[in-house]
């Protein structure tokens, strides 16, 4: 029983990073994804802020889910999300001034990130608090890794640097401009889809082999 619970918790966390990745699989939160990822550090900063807001808002939505009438659940979820975002904005302004300045406009923008509302509606409002929290943590981590990867590719190709460290002088500026965001995102999504298809094919082949072996064993 405890094993089942543990594997369920692990799956809840893991799916946000792999099979249900918000960026490359669900294509959620595209606006900040495209706007912020001009440099790796921006993607990382935005992602970490989303992890905090998503985990906390998922937890809170799950805790209040039984007292929220169905018709007014969306405005209440938005109130919860906006409260957490404003709280984080104020706390960062007061205690981590440099990070707050770097993230600038992106912190208030988290309110309108559809991943947060999407997970509140699709998962947190239907599951117990600990799973909701893990889902938020997993989805947030998946989002962070996706943004960091996208930001890294764009920064390396467009600016010849990574995390601010100069690599070479060859720069393709298009990659840090909006068209570069779409192109990089498309290429990365295609790459992950290719891996997914190859894996599915390999799995199908394995199943067929297994069936064949079982049939042969039965015959024998």
């Amino acid at each position: 029983m405890a094993d089942k619970e543990q594997s369920m918790a692990w799956y809840t966390f893991k799916k946000g990073i792999t099979t249900e990745n918000p960026t490359y699989v669900q294509a959620l939160g595209m606006c900040p994804t495209l706007a912020v990822t001009t440099a790796a550090i921006n993607g990382l900063g935005m992602g970490l802020a989303v992890v905090v807001v998503l985990s906390l808002s998922n937890l809170m939505v799950s805790l209040i889910r039984k007292s929220v009438p169905k018709d007014i659940r969306i405005p209440i979820f938005i109130v919860v999300i906006a409260t957490f975002v404003t709280m984080i904005d104020l706390l960062m302004h007061a205690y981590t001034y440099d990070l707050w300045k770097t993230l600038g406009i992106f912190i208030p923008l988290i309110v309108v990130n559809c991943i947060i509302l999407g997970r509140a509606e699709a998962f947190a409002s239907k599951n117990p608090p600990h799973y909701a929290f893990l889902d938020g943590l997993g989805m947030g981590t998946g989002f962070t890794l996706s943004l960091f990867l996208l930001g890294s590719v764009r920064e390396i190709a467009g600016n010849g640097s990574w995390l601010g460290i100069h690599l070479w002088n060859f720069k393709m500026f298009m990659f840090i401009l909006p068209p570069g965001a779409f192109i990089t995102l498309g290429l990365l999504a295609a790459f992950f889809n290719y891996i997914k298809i190859k894996r599915a094919e390999a799995e199908k082949k394995r199943q067929q082999e297994l069936k064949k072996q079982q049939a042969q064993a039965q015959k024998a």
Binding site: S67, V68, P69, I72, P75, I76, V79, V80, A82, T83, T86, M87, L90, L91
Partner: peptide, 17 residues
């Protein structure tokens, strides 16, 4: 109910502010 939630959120934010 909606009002209660917004009032609580308002108080929490006022406190943090």
């Amino acid at each position: 109910i909606l009002m209660i939630y917004t009032v609580i959120a308002g108080f929490v934010l006022a406190g943090i502010y």
